[in-house]
C-alpha cells in the first residue's frame, strides 16, 4: 500500500521513542493479569500425579460434562454458520428499511450481560414461555432445561462472531469475479454457490472457530436454561464451580486445564485446515 520499503525498518523503528517503556508496561500487565494466573492453572493439577489426574478426569460426570460443553459448542457454531451468513449477506448486500437497526442489533449478544441473556432465553423457552409454550403444546418439544436449551443459549452468545467475521470479507469481495461468472453464462445461483461461497469459506471457518471458542467456556447464559442435571445438562464450567465449592482445587484445575487443552487442539486443527485452504487458492 504505502511506498515505504521494508529495508532499513530496524533503523527507522528506533527513531520513535518509547519502545522500552511501553514493552515493559505491556509485559508486566500481561504477566500479572493473564500469564501468572494461567500458570497456576497449568501447575495445580500436577499435584494429583499422572494417575490421579487421569482418575479425576475419567469420572463419568466429568466426561459427560466435557462431552456436553464441546458437543453443544460445536453444534451451536455449526447451526450459526448459515444464520450468520444470511445476516451478513442481508446487512452487506441488501438495502431495506430497518437495515441500520438490524446491523446495530447484531452486536446485541456482545453487549447484553450473559446472566441477562440466560434468564431472558429461559423465560421465552420455558414450557409456559412465548416460544416454549406453543412448541410444547403443538409438538411436545421441550427446550428449556434440556440439552436443546444449552445449544440455544450458545447460539445466542456466539452468533455475532460469525456475522462480524464474514461481513468485512463479503463487503471487500471484488465484484469482478462475480461479473466474470455472470458474463461466462453462470446463473446467479451458480455464481453464488461456486464463486461467492468458496471465497467466504476461510472467513466462515474463522467465525466458526471464534464462535466455538466462546461457546465452549460459556457459563452465565447457560446455567439458567440448562437445568444443570448431572450427566445430562451439566456443562464443564459448572463442574469447575462445583469442585471449587468442595475445595477440590486440583480437581477443578484439572477440568479447566482439560478444557483449555482440548479447545486449543481443536482450534489448531481448524487453523491447519485454514492454511491448506489458503495455499490451495494461490
Amino acid at each position: 500500500m504505502s511506498a515505504s520499503l521494508p529495508a532499513g525498518r530496524g533503523a527507522r523503528a528506533r527513531a520513535i521513542p518509547g519502545f522500552r517503556a511501553t514493552l515493559a508496561v505491556t509485559l508486566l500487565w500481561l504477566a500479572v493479569i493473564v500469564l501468572i494466573p494461567l500458570a497456576a492453572l497449568a501447575l495445580r493439577p500436577l499435584e494429583l500425579g499422572p494417575a490421579g489426574l487421569i482418575a479425576s478426569l475419567s469420572e463419568e460426570r466429568v466426561v459427560a460434562a466435557l462431552g456436553l460443553s464441546f458437543g453443544a459448542a460445536l453444534l451451536a457454531a455449526l447451526l450459526n454458520l448459515p444464520l450468520g451468513l444470511l445476516l451478513a449477506w442481508a446487512v452487506v448486500r441488501l438495502r431495506f428499511p430497518g437495515r441500520g437497526i438490524l446491523d446495530a442489533a447484531l452486536d446485541l449478544p456482545f453487549a447484553l450481560p450473559t446472566a441477562v441473556a440466560g434468564i431472558a432465553l429461559t423465560a421465552i423457552a420455558a414450557p409456559n414461555g412465548w416460544v416454549g409454550g406453543p412448541l410444547a403444546e403443538l409438538f411436545g418439544w421441550k427446550i428449556a432445561f434440556t440439552r436443546a436449551g444449552v445449544v440455544l443459549a450458545l447460539m445466542f452468545v456466539s452468533l455475532p462472531f460469525i456475522v462480524r467475521t464474514v461481513e468485512p470479507v463479503l463487503r471487500d469481495m471484488a465484484a469482478e469475479a462475480e461479473e466474470a461468472a455472470a458474463t461466462l453464462g453462470a446463473t446467479r445461483a451458480q455464481t453464488v454457490l461456486r464463486v461467492v461461497l468458496p471465497g467466504l469459506l476461510p472467513a466462515l471457518l474463522t467465525g466458526f472457530s471464534l464462535a466455538f471458542a466462546r461457546s465452549v467456556g460459556e457459563y452465565g447464559s447457560v446455567i439458567f436454561i440448562a437445568g444443570n442435571l448431572p450427566m445430562l445438562t451439566e456443562i464443564a464450567p459448572l463442574l469447575i464451580v462445583i469442585r471449587l465449592e468442595q475445595y477440590d482445587y486440583a480437581g477443578a484445575a484439572a477440568v479447566g486445564l482439560a478444557m483449555l487443552v482440548l479447545s486449543f487442539l481443536l482450534l489448531l486443527a481448524i487453523e491447519l485446515v485454514q492454511r491448506r485452504l489458503r495455499r490451495g487458492r494461490r
Binding site: 494461567l38 492453572l41 466462546r214 467456556g217 460459556e218 457459563y219 452465565g220 464450567p237 464451580v241 486449543f264
Partner: peptide
C-alpha cells in the same frame, strides 16, 4: 483471554 472461559 478471549478464548479462555470466564470460569477458568
Amino acid at each position: 483471554p478471549f478464548s479462555v472461559s470466564p470460569v477458568i
